[in-house]
Design a binder for these strands. Structure first.
Lengths: 112, 112
DNA sequence: TTCTTATACATAAGAAAATTATGTATATTA
DNA sequence: TAATATACATAATTTTCTTATGTATAAGAA
């Protein structure tokens, strides 16, 4: 495969953010959505995604609802109440991180 | 320390970028510079920094020059010729990554 | 009709890159 | 004189990813 490079530490927050705006999503859908939104720049591998979803569920931030569509299994995830709160925090953290990185890498960029 | 994490994968590029603009720096100086530039947001730990410097040196991207100041050791690092070329590539990659992350996290932000 | 690609889940082995803990040593400040 | 700052380093551990592998169904191409 033609690579990608998902920077470590941001996957969980990306998942939470997508679920926040989409309501509910299943794993495969998340990989496609991220690929779309980043024009192929970020490719979430299954080996990273599924364990991440399971962990977020174990932490009580997501819950699952199994569905069968076209005779194929889908596991829809959505934020729990706690998950919604955490999403706010983690998004703020990630945004702050992005700003810091920008400031380091290219102080000329301005953010609106 | 009330630090914040989350710069995984980008440390090497940050080091290269700083050396590109500063000419030469020693390890401790790098940690302080990053802390300054990010207003305490990013704290590079020694356990991350020194192995990273050693690895970049082993890859031929940096070279070292030992100095003694106030009876204390300093190891000044600077980019090799190869290091200068690599810095351009890695910076472009990191900038692309930052744009992607922004697009995911906050599509409203504009970059100039 | 059969092979490939897409959809959809999962886990195990290994690598990469951090954190945390520890160590040495000198200089400065409270 | 004790604590903090400066300056290096490494080992053990953890986190988080990649790569490889596995199961199964559906759709499309050859």
């Amino acid at each position: 495969m033609g690579n990608s490079k998902l920077y470590k530490g941001s996957l969980n927050t990306i998942i939470l953010k997508l679920l926040e705006e989409q309501g509910k999503m299943y794993g495969y859908e998340i990989t496609q959505k991220v690929k779309d939104l980043t024009k192929g720049e970020l490719n979430i591998t299954e080996g990273a995604l599924y364990p991440a979803l399971h962990k977020l569920e174990a932490e009580g931030l997501l819950n699952v609802e199994v569905a069968k569509v076209d005779n194929r299994l889908r596991k829809y995830y959505k934020l729990t109440e706690q998950g919604e709160k955490e999403t706010v925090n983690r998004l703020a953290e990630l945004e702050e991180f992005i700003r810091s990185m920008q400031n380091l890498v290219n102080p000329n960029w301005s953010i609106e």
